[in-house]
């Protein structure tokens, strides 16, 4: 039994790596624009299907398809950004309707092009088993993308804290008018946050395709999961996002092991409600941030 629990913890930890990538992208855009991009999970899904198409048509490994996916997802993110830019009134509220609509369009486009079948990589190298300490089992793809996820998160964290643009992004998220007074053009920073969010979504999408399975309805699920993690973390905290992602990942795998897989989603929501009840500003959020 202990072995099973340890295995569940380990698998949950690995899943946390790509959950964190998805959630951080959502959090960055929310930080700068006060917008929840409900099509974020579909961007992740799009990257996954690009990887699928490259593998099916040209036999590329998922890693090789990342540059192509970056272009496709980056352009799509840009289109979403430009569409949001056309909202003239009540951007916070109307953007929800807009991005929800975009999500539906993207899901159905994916359904039209790639059908509703469940897809996953057929590249056996990524599916080879990796055994840790004789007992903990995982696929090579899971480990690789968990490491990539953590590295990307660390890179984003460094970028936010040690570059002019990263600092400007935090400044815009913190106080928009004050940021303008520092010579920052918030529109450029918003576009930048969308772009970084797209990069994170791309890697996450290829990770999901390699380490798990995808089908068109997954995008919606991922958006909700990313939103839950972001709120858990307390908006805008990178370490918080990582912790929240691991928490959700572990919660889900433990449920699968100890109860049954169909209760997975429920566990995530229960954790979510519990933490909101106990710490309304999130795990890493400061008091008073809730008021925003």
């Amino acid at each position: 039994m202990l072995e099973l629990i340890l295995q569940a913890l380990y698998s949950g930890l690995l899943a946390g790596g790509y959950y964190a990538m998805i959630a951080l992208g959502l959090a960055l855009v929310f930080g700068t624009m006060r917008i929840i991009n409900l099509a974020h999970g579909e961007l992740v899904l799009l990257a996954a299907y690009v990887a699928f198409e490259m593998e099916r048509s040209f036999g590329w490994t998922p890693l090789a398809s990342i540059p192509v996916a970056l272009v496709v997802v980056g352009l799509t993110a840009l289109v979403i950004y430009l569409l949001i830019g056309r909202i003239r009134q009540d951007r916070e509220l109307n953007s929800l309707i807009l991005t929800f609509g975009i999500a539906i369009v993207l899901t159905n486009l994916i359904l039209m092009i790639w059908s509703a079948d469940i897809r996953s990589t057929s590249n056996s190298w990524f599916m080879d088993g990796v055994v840790l300490g004789d007992t903990l089992f995982s696929m090579r793809g899971e480990v690789i993308f968990c490491v990539i996820g953590v590295l990307l998160l660390a890179a984003t964290y460094w970028w936010l804290n040690h570059t002019w643009q990263g600092r400007a992004l935090r400044a815009v998220a913190s106080n928009r008018d004050a940021a303008k007074l520092m010579g920052v053009n918030p529109a450029r920073i918003e576009a930048l946050s969308f772009l970084v969010s797209g990069v994170l979504a791309t890697f996450a999408g290829v990770a999901v395709y390699t380490a798990s399975v995808v089908f068109p309805a997954v995008g919606h699920n991922l958006t909700i999961k990313a939103f839950v993690i972001t709120v858990l973390a307390g908006m805008g905290s990178v370490p918080g996002v990582l912790l929240g992602a691991v928490l959700i990942g572990v919660g889900e795998t433990l449920t699968t092991t100890l109860a049954k897989p169909s209760l997975q989603e429920l566990t995530g929501m229960v954790i979510f409600l519990l933490i909101l009840f106990l710490r309304p500003s999130g795990l890493f959020g400061r008091k008073g941030m809730v008021k925003k």
Binding site: N161, W164, R167, A168, R170, A171, S174, N175, D177, A178, A179, L181, M182, G183, V184, G236, R286
Partner: peptide, 26 residues
């Protein structure tokens, strides 16, 4: 032309140094 807003308009969740560096952003 630069405006110094009242003190409450500093960036609260950034360090003092990062706040100052934002002044050199242009």
């Amino acid at each position: 032309m630069v405006m110094i807003p009242e003190g409450r308009m500093v960036f609260p969740d950034m360090s003092v140094l990062d706040n100052l560096m934002m002044g050199a952003y242009p």
